[in-house]
Nucleic acid binder design. Structure first.
Lengths: 159, 159
DNA sequence: ATGATAAAGTTGACGTGTCAAGTTACCTGT
DNA sequence: ACAGGTAACTTGACACGTCAACTTTATCAT
């Protein structure tokens, strides 16, 4: 039972947890906790709220469909989140003149002030995170992410 | 608003998406889709089901609390998932003799056969994924994940 | 012994993520 | 001009994740 070659060996959990994907899950979860806590504390918003208002701020002439395409966030989720954000007065939506299906999204003054206050801080966070890596490590990381994303599109990987 | 030099620059969305954390979110999501699809197709189970039964298989004398500590999965979620897994006949649980609070978890024959069938395939997937990286890239990636995890514990990052 | 404390697991509540179907409005070919 | 298709959202359904309160049982200090 203690032989490393034995398929029932108790150190398999170690191996399991060294699966790259397990490590990424855990990293992701910790980063989310960090960002969520920070945003809740300093701006009273959630991480998804933040992603949406930051995107609305950074894109011109935003609509739900456009946000969906740009961020990959689900249309349904966006629809509900946007209702919440408009009812809280952070986003305002205005019907298009020509096409009454489309709603143009803009930040209200309050929404804008949150983004203006938080964007530098969120950028500082990115710098802090990437600052723990060397230049080489950072560029290698981006390259590895590229490769892994491509590999994630494959559906069969039997030998 | 992502470019300090040109607040209205039209390529801002690009920069936003180059935030390391955004890239990790997207990578994570694609890896999850890949693994979930694969598991659903070949074993009819979800990714969380898989994590749990793979852990039960690899650990000796498993209990809910132990799983919780080892995997970081929420106790509540584990409790519900385990009920589903036992009712589906993949896991069996048995009360401890000394301490009637604890339930020892083991795989049923069916659960075990799923793990035995899928573990090599999931390992093959890991090899496939890591195989797209060079040795150096892989070790740099692990190192970077370590560093980022540590950085994710920090709560303040103002300059 | 026994009362405070804590551990194992369960349950409830609530936000998030994902898929699919539905509604309304526009567009296009005849 | 109008039928069929498609686009922009909305709504519904359901799994997942996360937090906290709760129940039951054990432990430990006195």
């Amino acid at each position: 039972m203690l032989d490393a070659d034995d398929p029932e060996s108790p150190d398999q959990d170690l191996k399991l947890r060294q699966f790259l994907t397990y490590r990424l899950v855990r990293l992701q979860s910790r980063l989310n906790v960090q960002a969520s806590r920070y945003l809740a504390e300093h701006a009273g918003i959630t991480l998804t709220d933040w992603r949406i208002i930051a995107m609305i701020d950074s894109l011109d002439n935003t609509t739900l469909t456009y946000l969906n395409r740009e961020t990959g966030l689900d249309k349904g989720q966006l629809s509900r989140k946007l209702r919440s954000l408009t009812s809280r007065g952070l986003v305002s939506s205005q019907q298009d003149n020509q096409d009454s299906r489309v709603q143009h999204l803009t930040l209200t003054a309050e929404g804008k002030s949150i983004v203006d206050a938080m964007l530098p801080r969120m950028r500082a966070r990115q710098r802090f995170l990437t600052g723990t890596l060397t230049e080489d490590e950072l560029s290698a990381l981006h390259r590895s992410i590229d490769k892994l994303e491509r590999a994630a599109e494959t559906t069969e990987f039997e030998t």
